[in-house]
Write a protein that binds this DNA or RNA. Structure first.
Lengths: 199, 199
DNA sequence: CAAGAAATTGACACTGTGTAAAGTTGACAC
DNA sequence: GTGTCAACTTTACACAGTGTCAATTTCTTG
């Protein structure tokens, strides 16, 4: 694959990203993307044979540009379970708005496209691992409520931090990102850390 | 509109419902519905000019059959805020699985169809009213956490009780309906009722 | 039985995805 | 400079699914 081809590929991914980001409500078609990227629809298909390929590549491109793994490091360096929970919520919670447009497009496709479903499940599984790590740190502290198994606590945190929940609070209910982070942190804290363990 | 026409209309709605219920993963097309209801696609269009009309009518049909208003009465007769919250969660939480198939189809369309969006927003607004009523009852008891305004508490409860959250916990994480109800009740209780107000 | 509503038959327009083939352009190698 | 190769263009078409239209048949009911 030549230099030029790589440039074009990157230009397509950036364009797709931008389109999905700026018009999260509208259906972005292959023709729209091609036009915006300055090539023909057919040339677009030379780079990405299916629309789903393009969408999946765009999410991966985002993860690369933003370096999601590095972003989640703070949560790994936190000492107590409480701190780790807060750090993870902040890291992931601040990542969501960055990927929202693309994520929405993927979520819309995942029911009809098996490849998109797999890619999406993969990304969400990574998030669940982050949740599980935070829950585990809480458990090591002996601070998990007795009513919750680690798995249950992980599922709850995963659901609280889902993109749908973020969407509902910030897009539908109109919360600011700050309010989202503040209340979500407090909510997760209240739900997952045993009261008498709070010193 | 004659007797027969009404029968056919009901048959179509029941068929659509059943199809969406039994194959929540697959895309149900107008031709599928027509075939299953025992008429031609064109005849189906005589009753519902657009796919969105049919989907909207199907949700309304469900609400009618299940009498959603009556279902939510227990929450209105509860005395304390705590009881009212629990009753509302049980009523609405048990309603979700009944409408899940149809709701999913509507959610998938709401980004591309303005009418569906309006109908969906309308239904969800009704749920929010239920949430607001429960929160209000808690506030009257003076049991709302000081860190939350009634509006914020309502938004949080609304998000916790969203269909997406139910979907994530029961469909993705594999929770039983019982587990969902139990933990959601406890979660909402912990989040929305001030600890020192628990007697 | 006549009238009218409900449904059928068959055809077509439109949108968006995806495929296919022939021709153009530009860079680079020799 | 000529040849070649990859990227891209142009043009055309197949296919699925929604929605429209018109002519015809069947059923129901007064």
């Amino acid at each position: 694959m030549s230099r030029k081809s790589l440039d074009t590929r990157k230009r397509i991914l950036d364009t797709t990203w931008k389109l999905l980001e700026t018009e999260p409500e509208k259906a972005v078609r292959m023709a729209d993307i091609a036009k915006a990227a300055g090539l023909t629809r057919q040339a677009l298909y030379l780079h990405f044979p299916k629309r789903s390929d393009l969408m999946i590549a765009t999410v991966r491109h985002l993860d690369e540009v933003y370096d999601v793994d590095t972003r989640l490091i703070p949560s790994r360096t936190a000492s107590s379970g409480r701190e780790r929970l807060a750090a993870f919520i902040e890291a992931w919670g601040n990542y969501i708005p960055l990927i929202y447009g693309v994520a929405k497009a993927l979520m819309a496709m995942k029911d009809t496209d098996a490849d998109v479903n797999a890619a999406w499940t993969d990304r969400m599984t990574a998030v669940r691992h982050g949740c599980a790590a935070a829950v585990n740190a809480i458990e090591v502290d002996g601070a998990l409520p007795r009513s919750l198994t680690p798995d249950e606590a992980t599922d709850i945190l995963w659901a609280l931090l889902s993109i749908s929940t973020w969407e509902q609070l910030t897009q539908t209910s109109g919360w600011s990102q700050d309010a989202y982070l503040k209340h979500m942190t407090s909510l997760a804290h209240t739900a997952l850390i045993r009261p008498e363990a709070i010193t």
